[in-house]
């Protein structure tokens, strides 16, 4: 009965070679790792590893270039879409993506984000929305929910004085240059599968140079939310998803 199933013939899942073997520096249970992995799996499945160039942000995922087994370029804080624009225009046949947090993409880099989408740059933007500046200690981000506590809004975000949380994906979806915009999550198996399909679609669209593809992933930050990873995922479902509903926001016209 204890026949050994562990042999290559029965293999159904292993870490993709489009990720390096380095140990991720992310906190336990952080969605950044899962988001990296599905993007790497898409690159692997489309067999475009040698044709893909990624741009890393500033934020917890600043070291993304250690983990993606593709050519990578680090950008100054928030400037990834501008750097990706340059790369894509020099190498129009390459698959170019940025990977950015909400502080990077929706605060310091808002201008670069909006204008890259408005120009319809043929890049994929992967946007990790954890409602906070993770790397620097949990400060309030533009995406922080109303009432959500952060190190710079210790009594909760007060929209009167601090403004409302910014739905930047809905905002860029308004721009004619944005071809595809969707919001996903990676905390549960079904969400991981869906998010991966969305990223795959976006990468495939890039082949036809139709415009910017924007994939938001609502994610957790157990360390700064001060919760266990499993609690943070539950909190995310209860609090983030009602304001940031999952699903496609802009899909290509038939």
């Amino acid at each position: 009965m204890s026949e050994n199933l562990v042999n290559p013939e029965n293999l159904v899942y292993k870490k993709t070679d489009a990720m390096t073997d380095r140990v991720l520096h992310y906190c336990p249970g952080c969605g950044h790792g899962t988001a990296h992995r599905i993007l790497a799996e898409v690159i692997d499945e489309l067999q475009i590893q040698d044709q893909t160039i990624g741009v890393a942000p500033v934020g917890c995922s600043v070291l993304a270039y250690y983990y993606f087994n593709v050519d990578m370029q680090e950008a100054a804080h928030g400037r990834a879409p501008a750097v990706a624009t340059g790369i894509k225009r020099v190498f129009p046949e390459k698959y170019v993506f940025t990977y950015q947090g909400d502080g990077d993409l929706a605060a310091i880099g808002t201008a670069e984000t909006i204008h890259a989408c408005n120009r319809g740059e043929n890049i994929l933007v992967v946007f990790i929305n954890n409602g906070i500046y993770g790397m620097t200690g949990g400060q309030m981000a533009p995406t922080t929910l109303e009432g959500m506590k952060s190190s710079t809004s210790p009594f909760g975000r007060d929209v009167k004085s601090m403004g409302s949380p910014l739905k930047i994906t809905e905002l860029v979806a308004q721009l004619p240059g944005t071809y595809f915009a969707t919001r996903q999550a990676v905390h549960k198996p079904a969400n991981v599968r869906k998010a991966k399909r969305a990223i795959k679609k976006a990468m495939e669209y890039q082949k036809h140079n139709k415009g910017t593809c924007f994939v938001e992933i609502v994610s957790n930050c157990p360390s700064n939310w001060k919760m266990t990873p499993v609690q943070s995922n539950e909190w995310m479902e209860e609090n983030m998803f009602p304001f940031y509903p999952l699903g496609d926001i802009k899909v290509p016209e038939k």
Partner: peptide, 21 residues
């Protein structure tokens, strides 16, 4: 059952899954 649910949610990609043919 080798469904791979655990592996695809693991942020650190530490689980390898096998399933009988």
């Amino acid at each position: 059952t080798g469904c791979a649910n655990c592996a695809i949610v693991c942020p650190d990609a530490v689980i390898t899954v096998y399933r009988e043919k």
